[in-house]
């Protein structure tokens, strides 16, 4: 297992209106990217509960990406502002609970920024690949004898 080349697992929470559509555009434009990201579509970044992110790390993610509409472009007017404010506090908490906060990435990608989405995704994947696997929860799960999948 350890000899295998490390391929990071990335969970991306994206809003339906900007980033998901931007990712669609990347597809329509056939912009190639690495296969490590798994997108979870939510209506708005405002919907993203910080616990989702912790849960994703717990379930084996090596990095988490959150992306939504640019400030002022939110489909729901203010959802991304609430999200942004939440992350400012949440980020500090992550380190406190033992998750390296630099493994959590944020970006604003609009529906027209297919290229930016590719850059963001590849950037996150490469950056997490450099950091190596996130083992915090794996260790913890072993200690409390939860079988790691």
């Amino acid at each position: 297992m350890e000899n295998e080349k490390f391929e990071p697992k990335i969970v991306a929470f994206v809003c339906n209106w900007c980033t998901y559509t931007g990712a669609d555009l990347a597809g329509t434009s056939r912009l190639k990217q690495q296969t490590n990201a798994r997108l979870i579509r939510v209506p708005c970044t405002g919907r993203i509960d910080p616990v989702f992110i912790i849960k994703a790390f717990e379930k084996g993610a090596d990095g988490v990406l959150v992306s939504g509409c640019h400030p002022n472009d939110c489909h729901y007017n203010t959802g991304n502002f609430h999200a942004r404010r939440r992350w400012i506090f949440f980020r500090q908490l992550l380190d406190f609970v033992g998750i390296d906060s630099s493994r959590l990435y944020f970006s604003w990608v609009s529906a027209s920024e297919g290229k930016k989405w590719v850059d963001v995704v590849d950037g996150v994947i490469n950056s997490v690949r450099e950091k190596g696997p996130f083992n915090g929860y794996k260790k913890l799960n072993k200690e409390i004898e939860i079988p790691v999948k």
Binding site: K9, V11, R38, I40, V42, R47, D49, K55, K59
Partner: peptide, 21 residues
């Protein structure tokens, strides 16, 4: 809870993203 995107539904996705990777 937001119907269609309830916590259970999103956790189900998170829980299953990495069964085989």
């Amino acid at each position: 809870e937001l119907l269609g995107f309830k916590d259970d539904q999103i956790y189900a996705q998170i829980n299953s993203f990495a069964e085989v990777f």
